[in-house]
Structure formats: structure tokens, C-alpha cells
């Protein structure tokens, strides 16, 4: 399956600002069933882009704009291929719990057991765990995580505007409402409390007409990945009560939202700013490969063209070059 993703971000300022500095985490990852076929970023005002790979393997772009500007527009365009994976087993091996040890987990996976800013235990979450019987389960972790995915889907209403990007999970827990980011943080905190390494996945969801997705289709999406020693990282989407699969396009992973915001930036000037975001994910055809597009004009087996100049003259000219 091929997808084309267009992700436009626009900051508008009430008066001119200067020295904008910005980091972007919006390049789809290329690993497992997902591969990135093309990617480009255009900014307006134009800026020199720099890139690095962070310790989580996310591609990060950054740039700065020194001169005054009243608007900053970032347009990212990607083509991604996702191949279907064999379906997951209904449950994991009953011995799975005993595999959460130093032999099977890497340091990075241990790190994802520690609480992080947005995904940590709070009294509110402890009460939620008691109310919904979500203490560390006895049966296999895959089945338990599936149940947790469904429980969260049922316990919360999807309502944009109740929480914002910086809301702690307690806001959603109190209101029983929120958006994908809140549900992901809650699920991560619970999975970690069970001793399962869990991380936040940020990216895009392709909405097919027939699907009953709650999440908005013109925005970025977030879900959860939990580590099962015998199966690897498995994606859960508590917002839509589905497993993350062929329709989930991963841009970045991290301990929580803090590690993976699509844009993060600062500017100088006392202006108010307005942020507008638009995302379009469309199914597309396989991009034409260069090999197919280019027509070979002269096959390699054809005779060498006759040199227009005798060989010795050619050598002589080379020797004349100082």
C-alpha cells in the first residue's frame, strides 16, 4: 500500500518576529513494514535545512530564520509504502512475562519502563486503574494490552478542545474526554506500571471511508507501541480501538509527546502567534522508479564512440596542464 502525505504547518504572528528557530519531526520512519519512498520539506521564508537522527532513530530537521517575518510556513510531502504484516496471534505465549529481563531487553527498552513527564503514575490514574480493574494482569501481556486498548476506548469520549498539547493526563482522566495524545499517554503509563516497555508513536492515520475512526482525518495522529519480547514492538491505537497496522504511518517514536512534537520552535519578538495545521493522507500508486522513467538512449554494449582527437594529442594536452 502506498500513501502520499502532505503536512502543512503555518505560524502567523500579530507583528513581525525575528530569529525563529525550529525543529521538525515529520519525516516518516523507514523500518519494518514501512519504507519511505520520497520526502521533501519546503519552508517560507526559505531557510537552509539541517538534519540529524536523534537517539530514538527519528529524523529531525532544523532551521532558523534571522530576518523579520510575519508568517512561517512549513510544507512536508512524503510518499510511504507499507506492506501487510502477517496477522498477530490471538495471544502471546504464557511465559511472556518471564521474558522481561536483562537477556531480552535492551537498555533503550529499560529506559521505556521509567515514568516520563506526560506518562507517569498520578493519584488520578491510580484511581482509574482501580475503578477499571487494570492492575497488572495474570494472563498473557498481548491479550491484556488488547483489553486495555478496548477499555480506554470505552472509558473515554473523543472530544477535541478539552485538552491541549501540554495537558497532563489528569485533565483527560477527570473529564473522561480527550484526544489521541491523552489516550496514548494513559495507556503508556499503565503498560509501564505492568512492567511492559511502552512508547509514544506520532504520525498519520489513513482514513478509509468504511472505517469507524473517531480521530479527525485532517490532523496528525498518535498511538502506542508496547514491547513483547517474543513479538517485538506492537502498535495499539486506543483512540480507535484497533491495532496499529497498515493504515498507521509512523513519523517518530519517543517516551511521550515531549520527545516527538512535529514542530517545536522559538522566536524573538513580542507577538501573539496563530498555528494552523493541515494534513492530507491519500492512497497513491507506486511512485515511478528512476529506472523505469529514464529511457536508455545508448545501451552499454554498443561500440565506443570514435575519439574526436588522436590519443597522443589528448595525453599531450593533459601534460600541458599545470
Amino acid at each position: 500500500m502506498f500513501y502520499s502525505i502532505r503536512h502543512v504547518t503555518r505560524f502567523r504572528y500579530s507583528s513581525p518576529v525575528r530569529e525563529s528557530v525550529m525543529e521538525l519531526r515529520m519525516q516518516p520512519r523507514s523500518e519494518g513494514p514501512q519504507s519511505l519512498r520520497s520526502f521533501q520539506i519546503v519552508t517560507n521564508p526559505r531557510a537552509q535545512l539541517y538534519a540529524y537522527t536523534d537517539y530514538l532513530g527519528n529524523a529531525v530537521y532544523h532551521f532558523n530564520v534571522l530576518r523579520e517575518h510575519e508568517e512561517l510556513r512549513i510544507e512536508a510531502q512524503a510518499v510511504v509504502e507499507i506492506v501487510a504484516m502477517p496477522p498477530l496471534p490471538g495471544g502471546a505465549d504464557p511465559l511472556e512475562w518471564s521474558r522481561y529481563n536483562s537477556y531480552n531487553l535492551s537498555d533503550d527498552q529499560f529506559d521505556l519502563l521509567e515514568p516520563s513527564l506526560f506518562a507517569s503514575m498520578t493519584p488520578e490514574l491510580a484511581a482509574f486503574i482501580v475503578a477499571h480493574d487494570l492492575a497488572k494482569p495474570k494472563d498473557d501481556p498481548l491479550a491484556a494490552l488488547r483489553r486495555l486498548n478496548t477499555t480506554l476506548h470505552q472509558a473515554f469520549e473523543y472530544t477535541p478542545g478539552v485538552t491541549d498539547a501540554q495537558s497532563p493526563i489528569d485533565v483527560a482522566l477527570k473529564q473522561k474526554r480527550g484526544v489521541c495524545q491523552d489516550f496514548a499517554h494513559i495507556m503508556i503509563a499503565i503498560a509501564r506500571s505492568w512492567g511492559i516497555p511502552a512508547r509514544y508513536a506520532s504520525g498519520y492515520l489513513y482514513h478509509r471511508g468504511s472505517c469507524q475512526d473517531r480521530s479527525a482525518d485532517n490532523a496528525t495522529h498518535a498511538w502506542v507501541e508496547a514491547y513483547l519480547p517474543s513479538l517485538g514492538w506492537i502498535g495499539f491505537d486506543p483512540t480507535n480501538n484497533i491495532m496499529a497496522g497498515e493504515r498507521h504511518i509512523r513519523a517518530a517514536v519517543g517516551r511521550d509527546y515531549c520527545d516527538v512534537p512535529p514542530t517545536r520552535g522559538t522566536f524573538k519578538g513580542g507577538a501573539d502567534s496563530e498555528l494552523a495545521i493541515s494534513v492530507a493522507v491519500e492512497a497513491t500508486h507506486a511512485p515511478v522508479r528512476h529506472e523505469d522513467f529514464l529511457r536508455v538512449a545508448r545501451p552499454m554494449s554498443s561500440p565506443r564512440p570514435t575519439p574526436s582527437m588522436p590519443e597522443h594529442l589528448y595525453h599531450q594536452q593533459q601534460q600541458q596542464q599545470q
Partner: peptide, 8 residues
């Protein structure tokens, strides 16, 4: 702002 990336 941006100092850490210059450092990196």
C-alpha cells in the same frame, strides 16, 4: 535557541 544543535 539552537545552541544544542550547533553543539551536536
Amino acid at each position: 535557541p539552537g545552541l544544542f544543535n550547533a553543539y551536536r
